[in-house]
């Protein structure tokens, strides 16, 4: 099965095991979400895909070939990433930042060709930042900058998109637009999402990480049960199903967190 495969991936940094023997498939064309509490190893898994970290055990396979055997540039032609680095040092324009997405496809300082430019414009249009093209990235709001960086990843023309909390800083409309873009693109994507409800809407499959280990995986409807959420996140929630789509959604209620006898009751 083509796509992305984690084959017993383990990551150890300074004698701390951060990811332990992860086995997970991201099938071709599927959107897979990684969820889990803070420090559960989600971003570390993504780092192994965009090559910021090398696995200490196991492998990440792209189309059955080990990423570790590919040059950084070769994997960059096929995998694009939105990292947690949301800052840009220099006073680039939005168009210049998006154009950097073409880097792995261009030799050295080779200037952008017409096709490169068209891809950049299309990516900016899809992320609703085309009107900002000549603005300085440093003058943008957090959400606008996030959309610029995602447009940069799209301009990279990847087979696989790796996004670390892409909905951060985005307003509701842009969250929904981004997720429907992900679903509609037919592109393989691995996404870390904090909001379980957004994850349930956007992803074909979810992998739940806890303490560096995969504790559940499968379609959102199978994975997102009150028992699992309580066990992994330590929060009691009510699961309802969307009246039209049947997608599971979690309802919060602060009172369900109160276990003490004199806490507020519903």
């Amino acid at each position: 099965m083509p796509g992305l495969r984690f084959d017993d991936l383990s990551v150890t940094v300074d004698h701390h095991t951060i990811v332990r023997e992860l086995r997970l498939d991201v099938p071709d064309g599927a959107v897979v979400g990684l969820v889990g509490p803070n420090g559960s190893g989600k971003s570390t898994v993504l780092r192994c895909v965009y090559r910021a970290l090398a696995p200490s055990g196991g492998a990440v396979l792209l189309d059955s070939s080990d990423l570790a055997t590919m040059s950084l540039r070769d994997s960059a032609r096929r995998i694009a990433a939105l990292t947690q680095e949301n800052s840009v040092d220099l006073d680039f324009t939005v168009a210049e930042v998006v154009a950097l997405g073409r880097t792995p496809h261009l030799a050295g300082n080779q200037p952008l060709g017409p096709r490169d430019r068209a891809l950049c414009d299309e990516a900016m249009a899809r992320l609703d930042v085309l009107h900002l093209a000549e603005r300085s990235v440093l003058s943008l709001s957090g959400g606008e900058r996030q959309r610029v960086l995602i447009a940069r990843a799209l301009a990279q023309e990847p087979e696989v998109l790796v996004l670390d909390e892409p909905t951060n800083h985005l307003d509701l409309r842009h969250q929904v637009e981004l997720l429907s873009l992900l679903r509609g693109a037919g592109r393989t994507a691995l996404v870390v999402v904090h909001d379980l409800n957004l994850a349930a809407i956007a992803c074909d499959r979810l992998g739940v990480l806890s303490g560096g280990a995969l504790v559940a995986s499968g379609p959102p409807a199978h994975v997102l049960t009150p028992e699992l959420v309580r066990a992994v996140f330590g929060v009691a929630m009510t699961v309802v199903h969307h009246p039209e789509t049947g997608v599971p959604q979690l309802l919060h209620s602060l009172s369900t967190m109160e276990e003490s006898p004199d806490g507020p009751r519903s």
Binding site: Y50, L72, A80, T83, E85, L90, E96, L100, T103, P104
Partner: peptide, 15 residues
Amino acid sequence: DVLSLGDETAGSLGV
């Protein structure tokens, strides 16, 4: 240029 996006992002762009 790519370095100004951060080291991890640079790596994801093949640099």
